[in-house]
């Protein structure tokens, strides 16, 4: 099976990239923040669970999963975080004022699904 996440983005042949080096999502991708309820520690606020948005930017460099870091893991596979754009009306059905309101938040790729 062809796995593009193994290859360098500029098409260099024969260079295998480490896990997590290539972002899973690209700017413009529509995504949904997952609805799940971890206990202990998380960095995805509850008000954003299940909300749909768009990847605005890939945050570089990649980082360690902050839910694991919260328990003292200072190393491990790095994953990408993404700056996600979400309209305020998607988050708050009764959003007051102008419809031109938006939220931006950084979300780790373990919390995003493609839609």
């Amino acid at each position: 099976m062809h796995d593009s996440s193994r290859e360098a983005p500029d098409g260099q042949v024969g260079i295998v990239l480490a896990w997590g080096e290539v972002p899973v999502f690209r700017p413009g991708d529509p995504v949904r923040i997952l609805t799940r309820y971890p206990v202990g520690h998380y960095r995805v606020p509850i008000y954003l669970r299940g909300k749909r948005g768009m990847v605005e930017a890939v945050v570089e460099p990649a980082g360690i999963d902050n839910e694991e870091e919260g328990y003292g893991r200072n190393a491990g596979i790095k994953l990408h975080y993404y700056r996600i754009a979400i309209p305020m009306t998607e988050i708050w059905s009764d959003y007051q004022g102008s419809h031109r309101g938006g939220l931006r938040v950084e979300v780790c790729e373990t919390w995003l699904e493609r839609i």
């Binding site: 309820y37 971890p38 998380y42 606020p45 509850i46 008000y47 954003l48 708050w92």
Partner: peptide, 18 residues
Amino acid sequence: MSETESLVTRLPNDIGGL
């Protein structure tokens, strides 16, 4: 979600939108 479940799954510092 039950009240006790919510006590466990919402961290006390997670206050956005409250």
